Amino acid sequence: MDEMRRFCRALGAWAAGGAGAGAAAEAARQPADGGVRMIVLVEGSSDQVALEALAARHGRDLGAQGVAVVPLGGATNIGRFLDVCGPPGLGLPLAGLCDIGEERHFRRHLERVGLGSALTRAGLEALGFHLCVADLEDELIRALGAEDVQQVIDAQGETRPFHTFQGQPAQRGRPVEHQLRRFMGTRSGRKALYARALVEQLELERVPRPLERLLAHV
């Protein structure tokens, strides 16, 4: 495991609290003193994969550049991670990505730790925190188009499972874009698989704005 992955794991253990939090905090502080220049807080591992894949398409290795992309394991954990990464903890520069439905969690805790007051969406973006309309999968599907997304699914050898999913009673009659988004969340690891595959398929001028702006910020 490389230094950046160790750092991210230590952050997670520190944010979780408990008996090992002190040792985890010490482990996180060591690379934060030199090798890490910014922390990007994202809701889940698929968001991390998408950002790192887009960076790679631009010839960037975020870890080598001192940017730690840290999945929160859910937006409601943002407060704990801001406590350890932000002014109360490491005090490192921060950025992030979240779904618009979770905006309130991010705004409230950013304000709580002193990173703004009465934050608007423009204010969040100025801090480096960008919002997806529904979620990143929705953004990528709309950017690429349903037909091209289905071609990506076919390239992954999952056309039959997708057609089976479409035939479920709860999915019949729903827009194909909705079916695609729901399909990507039906098995562990599938969101991350398609986050990478869709980003790699996108023309760079069609990258969703939240993802493009976040990469530009870091």
Rank of each mutant, 00 (worst) to 15 (best):
I39D: 01
V40Y: 08
L41V: 01
V42S: 08
V42Y: 08
E43F: 00
G44H: 01
G44T: 02
S45N: 11
S45G: 09
S45K: 12
Q48F: 04
Q48V: 14
V49P: 02
L51S: 12
A53G: 08
A55N: 10
A55L: 04
A56L: 00
R57P: 05
H58T: 06
H58M: 10
G59M: 00
G59Y: 00
R60T: 03
R60C: 00
L62I: 02
G63F: 08
G63A: 15
G63V: 07
G66E: 04
V67Y: 10
A68S: 02
P71V: 01
A75L: 01
R80C: 02
L82Q: 05
L82V: 11
V84Q: 12
G86Y: 05
G86K: 07
P87N: 02
P88Y: 00
P88C: 05
G89P: 03
G89A: 06
L90R: 13
L90D: 10
G91I: 12
L92C: 08
P93F: 14
P93A: 11
P93D: 15
L94E: 12
A95S: 14
A95G: 14
G96I: 01
G96S: 02
C98P: 07
I100A: 14
I100F: 14
E103W: 07
H105S: 13
R108H: 10
R108D: 12
R108I: 03
H109N: 06
L110R: 14
R112P: 00
R112H: 10
R112E: 09
V113I: 05
V113S: 01
V113K: 02
V113Q: 09
V113P: 02
G114T: 11
G114Y: 13
G114R: 13
L115S: 07
A118L: 05
A118S: 13
A118F: 01
T120E: 05
T120R: 13
T120V: 04
G123Y: 06
G123S: 13
L124W: 12
L124K: 07
E125G: 00
E125C: 06
A126K: 12
A126P: 01
A126E: 12
L127Y: 08
L127I: 06
F129H: 09
L131G: 12
L131R: 14
L131D: 10
L131A: 12
C132G: 08
V133T: 07
V133W: 10
L136N: 07
E137S: 02
E137M: 03
E139P: 02
L140E: 04
I141Y: 04
R142M: 15
A143I: 00
L144G: 07
G145E: 05
G145L: 08
G145V: 00
A146H: 11
A146T: 13
A146C: 15
E147I: 04
D148V: 11
V149D: 09
Q150H: 07
Q150Y: 10
Q151L: 00
I153F: 09
I153V: 15
A155H: 13
A155Y: 13
A155S: 15
Q156H: 15
Q156R: 15
G157P: 04
E158K: 14
E158H: 13
R160T: 00
P161C: 05
P161F: 05
P161N: 10
F165S: 11
Q166H: 06
Q168C: 10
P169R: 15
A170E: 15
Q171S: 03
Q171A: 04
R172K: 03
R172H: 06
G173M: 09
G173Q: 04
R174E: 09
R174H: 05
R174F: 00
V176M: 15
V176E: 14
E177S: 11
E177W: 06
H178C: 09
